[in-house]
């Protein structure tokens, strides 16, 4: 593990995107940032800019209109990056099975590294999901191999 990788483990910056969620998981993600759960003890900071972020937290089943936005955000993030699907509906579509405008899960649009269950996912579970994601991030090379194509959204 080189210095950059080590530093990345200690300060994973988070980008949060709501892809059609009911808000339940989103307020739990915000709860993670506040003093009781305090995700900042792992160095995680919520940022608004995809170019700064290492971890993409996505909630919601993804609908027809924000599919494009989600793909766009994912493509703007620099490698290495991980995607955490927070909540049951982000993982599989969940309760929104009969809804015509839903894609039924984040993995229908972009590759997902960690699935966090729960409706709404509890802050403890979200933090656990993030830590699992970081373990995966630690194994990723900090520079892409020569000639390798950058990871792209699934088409």
């Amino acid at each position: 593990m080189n210095l950059i990788q080590k530093a990345r483990m200690k300060s994973p910056w988070i980008l949060h995107f709501n892809a059609g969620s009911c808000n339940g998981c989103d307020i739990e993600i915000l709860s993670c940032l506040t003093p009781v759960y305090d995700i900042e003890r792992f160095g995680a900071v919520n940022v608004g800019n995809p170019k700064h972020a290492d971890v993409l937290l996505v909630t919601g089943p993804v609908n027809r209109r924000n599919e494009r936005v989600l793909r766009n955000l994912y493509d703007q993030m620099l490698d290495p990056k991980i995607v955490v699907a927070v909540g049951t509906c982000a993982s599989s579509g969940g309760v929104f099975q009969n809804c015509y405008n839903c894609m039924g899960g984040v993995d229908k649009v972009i590759p997902v590294d960690v699935y966090v269950p729960g409706c709404a996912a509890k802050p403890e579970t979200i933090i656990e999901g993030l830590i699992l994601g970081l373990e995966k991030l630690a194994k990723m090379p900090s520079k892409p191999k020569k000639g390798a194509q950058p990871a792209e959204a699934r088409t």
Binding site: G20, N63, R65, N66, F96, N98, C99, Y100, N101
Partner: peptide, 15 residues
């Protein structure tokens, strides 16, 4: 609008 539209009113008829 439309970024969070899921279609729950229709699902309410199908469930």
């Amino acid at each position: 609008l439309g970024y969070v539209h899921r279609g729950i009113e229709k699902a309410g008829e199908l469930n």
